[in-house]
Design a protein around this nucleic acid. Structure first.
Length: 269
DNA sequence: AGCGATGTTCGCCG
DNA sequence: TCGGCGAACATCGC
């Protein structure tokens, strides 16, 4: 479930495995996942270089080749991930792009449903601007003032606003539900109806939830017992004796606890 | 066999 | 100009 915490773990994984390894070749299984570049041009761009640092912005991971050589942007869609391996029998299914290193290892970009993308770009900063991505919600300089400026101006429902990547970068369907559950905020509350202290608490909660997820390697099974995510799709609420509700918000399935996250008055009649 | 799924984009409408 | 909505993208699992 590649949202910010998952991509943060992919970043750590790439940093611990494929960094500083000379790239010998690139194999593209399905060019469909390559956007804006041909397999040949990608190979031309990376061969002989090494990934020398990585950066993450929201759900995007950038692996830089260093010294103005550009780099590779990875986006994981709904089903993407990375695997670093050596022996052919360890080769994963659904690999779309493989970077072969001179040490005999490969880094595979996997995407079972091909909704992710791989790009070759010059500048990550430019890419972020062109994509119109909002601030990364775990960036150093993303303070409460910044949150108020961007998110606080939003109209619409709080769940939809949290998931809008041009407002805030990094939060998707699963973590928006978790953030709202932890705070006890109904997904259909209007952003403009939030009291100042609620807006402040939302900022604190979203940071706390994302950091907690990363601290648990973005593995829902390891999340604290008070977390909703492992219970998505199940009936019983982890916080009380009641049942979770499933509703549609902005075309996405949202799960919440009606007891903990009371509906706003304008939704009752 | 049909439907839903963790993501993004685009066009249409109010 | 923004937000809501539905469809589209590709594919798999239930």
């Amino acid at each position: 479930m590649p949202e910010l915490p998952d991509v943060a773990i992919f970043k750590r994984y790439l940093d611990a495995t494929a960094l500083h390894q000379e790239i010998e070749d690139v194999a593209v299984e399905d060019p469909y996942v390559l956007k804006g570049i041909t397999p040949e041009a990608l190979r031309e761009g990376v061969r002989g270089h090494a990934f020398d640092s990585t950066r993450r912005h929201g759900k995007y991971l950038f692996a830089a080749l260093g010294e103005g050589a550009g780099g590779v942007v990875l986006h994981f869609g709904m089903t993407g991930s990375l695997k670093y391996f050596q022996r052919p029998e360890a080769s994963p299914e659904y690999d779309q792009v493989r970077f072969h290193f001179t040490n005999g290892y490969q880094l595979a970009y996997l995407s079972q449903r091909k909704l992710g993308e791989v790009r070759f770009i010059e500048s990550f900063k430019t890419f972020i601007e062109e994509r119109d991505l909002g601030p990364d919600v775990l960036a150093e300089d993303f303070d409460y003032e910044r949150f108020k400026e961007t998110f606080g101006r939003r109209g619409g429902m709080v769940k939809s606003a949290l998931m809008d990547q041009s407002t805030l970068a990094g939060i998707g369907n699963v973590y928006s539900d978790e953030i709202l559950f932890q705070m006890g905020l109904h997904p259909r509350r209007k952003v403009q109806d939030l009291r100042p202290e609620e807006l402040r608490e939302l900022y604190d909660t979203l940071q706390e939830v994302l950091k907690t997820a990363i601290a648990h390697d973005a593995r829902p099974a390891d999340f604290p017992e008070s977390y909703l995510t492992p219970y998505r799709g199940e009936e019983d609420c982890p916080c009380c004796e009641g049942k979770l509700e499933k509703i549609e918000v902005g075309g996405r399935a949202g799960y919440y606890c009606p007891a903990r996250q009371p509906a706003p008055s304008d939704l009752r009649h």
